[in-house]
Amino acid sequence: MSAATATAPATRTRSYALRDSMTMLRRNLRHMQRYPSMTISIVTMPILMLLLFVYVFGGALGTGIGAGADRGDYVNYVVPGIILMSATSGAVATAVSVCTDMTEGIINRFRTMSISRGSVLTGHVLGSVIQVTAVLTLVMGVSLAIGFRPDASPVEWIAACGLLVFLAFGLAWLSAAMGMGAKTVEAASNAPLPLTFLPFLGSAVVTPDSMPAGLRWFAEYQPFTPINETLRGLLLGTPIGNDGWIALAWCTALSLAGYLWSRAVFNREVTR
């Protein structure tokens, strides 16, 4: 063993980074599979919202999105927003599972092992992306069942999925940092709540045009509005304009900020 390990330990660790991350990912997927209550709660929430907005508010809100629009048109309007909301709800699950890991003894075991340091977090982030993808698929299925009629081409579908996965990835890093920073699991589950609320303060359920001036300004410039509009454009053919690039920029910024923040908190926690 000593002969093999004498060769630069750093390279060795790096070459195992992927393998360790996959091991951690399998661990997190097994957690989700064995304790599906978290996944169930993050999938029921958007579906309930969808039903609420379509069947309870849909008739009234439909008229607000354009003259002559009805409940059927409103389904098409609101689904992209609900999809975004589903993507954000995964953040709570990620923050909770990261925080649970950090507050239990097992993290110290990982830290005393010769494994890629970041693999714990990478495992959580990838797990979160997979979880959110599953949730989005279910929500999309329900949406189609209640009358969502996208006209996207295969390329547009792929682009939409790519955008959502990118968003989920950025949100996962952000919520991983929140989960690590939180002292208790309760605090961790509260920290990402503003994120899940943010789509509503945009173009998710009504057009920002109907909002008061200050809020409208916020709604137009907050990250979820361009993402929402891009998604709507890809799925339903509404004009996208610059929103596509702005959406990508926001997703990149979220991922980068989340990653750097996570890394900073993780390193601080390690050296205490």
Partner: peptide, 17 residues
């Protein structure tokens, strides 16, 4: 880290597995 094993004061097991 490659040579040591640590068993801490509080059981470091994965309670969900």
């Amino acid at each position: 880290r490659r040579r040591i094993g640590v068993t801490g004061q509080f059981a470091a097991v994965d309670g969900l597995l």
